[in-house]
Design a binder for these strands. Structure first.
Length: 576
DNA sequence: ATAGGGTTAG
């Protein structure tokens, strides 16, 4: 077959199977020079299974006897366009080892990929190569470089690259602008915005979301009305801005009036309802969506997981896997799903998912491992949790807090304290969640004095104890028999005590048979919660123990006909 | 090459 014929075939070919046939012909005829062209053509396809494509492109590259820089550039650009950033960077490194001179496509795509995965080590080394290979005047490469620094928030370097650029495009301006917006430097952004020659929609949109994120919705609205042309993103930026300011109603108004909507509009709105705790409205919107993509499923599943509806989260996850057009779950899906399993204490559901990890094409990363630490710890497998914790690449605040809490609920107070000290040594500042775990640990170990010291040390880190922290302290004092201290703590709380706090006191009164405080506590509990049978039964058993039969009788009469055996409150505080 | 969307701990 002639080379020209093969080139025509290449232009028509649209499946991997056809490409393989053409490739075979190329090999038979010895037209190796046609391989880069085939790769190039294939990568222009609009296909859904990028990973298969990417793997194939990669293997083609390695079948070339001497891969040329053009082919490398094509494949690297393809990977970065399809969001396979880690793969793109590793390809660039491989190419660099062959001592080929990269194309501008290769360099700019590699820089973009570094920016997305925050691989600054690689990014900066490519920065060095930019000078070596003489891309000082290439707008694409320089803009990608500027964008890299802009994205990680190093505005000084970003500005330096920008100032030294011989040619700037509107993209370069926008890149710098979005960096200032993200850094919250609105003054600089505003000044830059006024200087941009030939602003486009993206410049306007960046400025709008800058004002909206800073809480200045009024100014965002003004710009929105003044801008010469609006696109979908302009509307979406306004919706996101309203949601950031908590005005869900205005967000919904914009959502309803916009001329067209895309997935981003829907997801922004769903996430907004989720943050506001309005799960029903979120689900209603979700059901109205025509084409649900991965991100819309993720938003809805996360909505359930974050609003204490783990069963619904898992149900939706199962629905997602059963769709006609298969939606491939990703790491973010699993993070929410693991959180749901953890809330249910359902380790077996996770094991089922784990057995499908390869099918999903998901590799465990630190983020998922942290979610798993919480799951395993909650299910009592503290050793497995420790194993995951030790295998983390980097232990951050969330990982430490999850592990400390895990130790706390598993009665390993000394481990929790050790972890806390280790965390401080690594200069990671604790937050309220860390202290919840730590206080839980002291509570389970019954270490009253140390626990109280710990509670008082919160202010050293600028932390104000929440109602839950007070609840744990009341429980700790109360169980140890320091009922007066527990009561004093409640009276001195800076906020209104809730049923949980009074309930902890009531339980302590039951343990130590204190009628006076028990009556006070139960009165507050009844005032604060509708389902009060559990509280009453606790009080009644106090009466019974101290042989106040009349009071016990009276109380039981009041509860007649009510079933309090399955009361969730009593099981929450059940003694070990 | 730039804007607008979904992840983990109580």
């Amino acid at each position: 077959m002639a080379a020209t014929k093969l080139i025509t075939l290449m232009k028509k070919c649209s499946t991997v199977k056809q490409a393989k046939q053409i490739h075979a012909h190329i090999l038979i005829n010895g037209f190796t020079f046609l391989r880069p062209l085939l790769i190039h053509r294939m990568l222009l396809w609009d296909v859904t299974n990028y990973r298969t494509m990417a793997n194939y492109a990669y293997s083609m590259l390695h079948h070339l006897h001497i891969p040329d820089s053009f082919s490398w550039g094509c494949v690297i650009r393809f990977f970065s366009q399809k969001c396979l950033f880690t793969e793109a960077v590793s390809l660039y490194v491989q190419m660099h080892r062959t001592s080929l001179c990269p194309t501008s496509h290769a360099v700019s795509s590699a820089l973009k990929s570094c920016a997305r995965i925050h691989d600054m080590l690689c990014g900066m080394s490519i920065h060095g190569q930019v000078h070596v290979f003489g891309f000082n005047t290439c707008v694409y490469v320089q803009t990608a470089l500027l964008d890299l620094y802009s994205k990680i928030g190093d505005m000084g370097t970003a500005r330096k690259v920008f100032d030294e650029m011989a040619n700037k495009s509107v993209v370069s301006w926008n890149s710098l602008l979005s960096g200032y917006v993200k850094a919250g430097n609105l003054d600089e952004a505003q000044y830059l915005f006024s200087e941009i020659p030939g602003k486009d929609v993206i410049s306007w949109n960046s400025m709008i979301s800058g004002y909206a994120k800073a809480g200045n919705v009024g100014q965002a609205c003004t710009l929105f009305q003044r801008m010469p042309e609006r696109n979908l993103s302009s509307w979406n930026a306004m919706i996101a801005g309203f949601i950031d300011c908590g005005s869900l109603v205005s967000a919904r108004e914009f959502f309803d009036t916009m001329p067209r909507r895309n997935c981003v509009s829907w997801i922004t709105m769903i996430a907004g309802y989720s943050k506001g705790g309005d799960v029903d409205s979120a689900r209603k919107l979700f059901d109205q969506m025509d084409h649900k993509d991965l991100l819309s499923y993720n938003a809805m599943i996360a909505c359930y997981a974050q609003n204490s509806k783990p069963k619904e989260a898992l149900e939706l996850f199962n629905d997602m896997l059963k769709q006609d057009i298969y939606v491939h779950p990703d790491k973010m899906t699993l993070a929410s799903v693991i959180s749901a399993c953890s809330q249910l204490g359902d380790l077996e559901h996770w094991w089922w998912i784990e057995s499908h990890m390869n099918d999903f094409g998901i590799v465990l990363d630190d983020h998922l491992a942290t979610a798993l630490i919480d799951l395993y710890a909650k299910c009592g497998s503290i050793d497995k949790a420790y194993e995951l914790f030790h295998n983390l690449r980097k232990r951050d605040l969330v990982a430490y807090s999850a592990m400390i809490y895990g130790c706390g609920i598993n009665g390993k107070a000394s481990d929790a304290i050790k972890l806390f000290e280790q965390m401080l040594a690594e200069c990671i500042g604790p937050n309220l969640v860390t202290y919840t775990g730590l206080l839980t640990a002291y509570n389970h170990a019954g270490l009253v004095e140390k626990g109280y010291q710990c509670f008082n040390s919160m202010k050293d880190y600028g932390l104000v104890p929440s109602i839950d922290h007070y609840g744990i302290m009341v429980d700790l004092f109360g169980r140890a028999g320091y009922l007066d201290e527990a009561y004093k703590l409640i009276l001195n709380m800076p906020m209104q005590p809730n049923a949980g706090v009074w309930g902890a006191l009531l339980l302590a009164c039951r343990l130590h048979n204190n009628v006076e405080l028990g009556e006070i506590a139960v009165q507050h509990c009844i005032k604060l919660e509708t389902d009060t049978t559990g509280y009453c039964s606790l009080l009644s058993s106090i009466y019974a123990t101290v042989e106040k039969w009349d009071d016990a009788k009276k109380l039981r009469k009041g509860m007649e006909g009510k079933d309090f055996t399955g009361c969730s409150w009593t099981s929450n505080f059940a003694t070990p």
